[in-house]
Nucleic acid binder design. Structure first.
Lengths: 234, 234
DNA sequence: AGAATTTCCTGCTATAAAGCAGTTTTTTAC
DNA sequence: GTAAAAAACTGCTTTATAGCAGGAAATTCT
């Protein structure tokens, strides 16, 4: 079904290198997995057998915390990797959980197959390396933001991030998250998110239609956090 | 002087692969740089020309924040990489600053030389990839901790981390950091760090000799943060 | 060694954020 | 379409953390 040669996800690292004949056998071993909304397909702490790619849909990647708090560490959409090292690294266990945010289709490769091609196709390995390096850079930026921004700034930053990552249609974000999800990504509580969103609505900066949020005034929101985002790579 | 073949840093990714004859020319282009304590050798936002390795010494890697707050994102010691993507990734600028914590010796490779060998020696590229993947995993753990631990827990976590990373001699940590450094890593203020350290001293869990800190009761400290560290890879 | 500077420390105050409890709205399931 | 469940919301209270100011100790410099 989802075939790497004709795949629409041009940003996918596998797709980018799929013309290499050495990948042919590897591609045959791909599995396609369908996930319903809210379904968890990676569980933190279980043995890692391989790596997932989002083919279609949206996914949240979560680290389990204390009480009922979780930390969303990243979001993945079409073409993006889920399950990071997938067992071919130093750890044999998944360090995160992953859950579909909407009905999604995933591609799956076993760690043996992956390790095999990664050790043989430098260009592909290099692309993987760059992917991790860029993710690392982003994660480090997030460390700084969590440590230094106020709760309000973090929530605004999250809203702007959602617009950048998933885009908007008719001033409504193309992603539907609960207040708890916003809290789990921004590093705060549900109540705090609700309070801040409601303030922003009153100020006319934010729009809400049912569950969906819309950014009405990107620039003003950006100004509110600009003192933290001066650096060359945000 | 610092020669990769005879180098003592067995954990260094270059050293690990230095027996490969294809590395010979590359190794000739290595530069050795000496740094005095407190000297900054990478400045955030400047064009990235290459990558550093710590040969001897200790280094802090920092992201610039608001006011006089900085976020220390990691520490590096013998054999470890500094300057991450070093310009061969998507960004052409350093996303962090780096400063020597004591007199240090660094190895330096240009991004052109690096890119050249990385695209030709899959095993090396694979090692680099794993390095970044592991760093990413650690960084994501840090994101969770910053979001969910209390200030006291974060400071304790930092103390235990220092012991794990740099070790202790006669119950004194083998690294000398200012209270501000502890704050900049833990994501809090200098005053808060001072208050918490002084509490721990009164409780007999911590020891201080001049500027150096010593952990007296590792286990009790670990228990104080255990509810956050249940997961398989901390 | 002594002066100057930086770092460290403490008590007090202000503020930001979290927690709780009860209500309303929205979504889901039959 | 209606009932049940989940999510969203609000006001109030409590707690955690930051900020300020002034002094003590330690370190650096000459």
């Amino acid at each position: 079904m989802a075939d790497c040669i004709t795949c629409k996800n041009k940003n996918c690292l596998i797709n980018k290198n799929s013309s290499d004949p050495r990948l042919a056998d590897f591609l045959k071993n791909k599995h396609t997995i369908r996930c319903k909304k809210s379904q968890q397909f990676i569980m933190e702490g279980t043995p890692a057998h391989g790596l997932f790619f989002a083919y279609e849909g949206k996914v949240k990647v979560v680290k389990t915390g204390v009480n009922d708090r979780e930390q969303i560490v990243r979001f993945a959409k079409d073409g993006e990797i889920i399950g990071h090292r997938g067992g071919f690294g130093s750890s044999k266990y998944y360090s995160i959980s992953a859950q579909a945010l909407e009905d999604s289709t995933l591609c799956y490769f076993s760690k043996e197959d992956l390790k095999n091609i990664l050790l043989n196709i430098p260009k592909l390995t290099f692309d993987f390396m760059l992917f991790y390096a860029d993710e690392l850079s982003e994660s480090e930026t997030r460390v700084r933001k969590l440590a230094q921004m106020s709760v309000k700034e973090r929530v605004i930053d999250t809203l702007l991030f959602m617009d950048t990552k998933f885009g908007s249609t008719d001033h409504l974000l193309n992603i539907s998250l609960s207040r708890k999800d916003y809290a789990d990504y921004s590093g705060t509580t549900e109540e705090q998110v609700i309070r801040i969103l409601s303030t922003l609505k009153k100020e006319g900066l934010l729009n809400a239609k049912g569950r969906k949020l819309g950014i009405l005034d990107f620039e003003t929101l950006q100004n509110e956090i600009s003192k933290h985002t001066f650096s060359p790579n945000s």
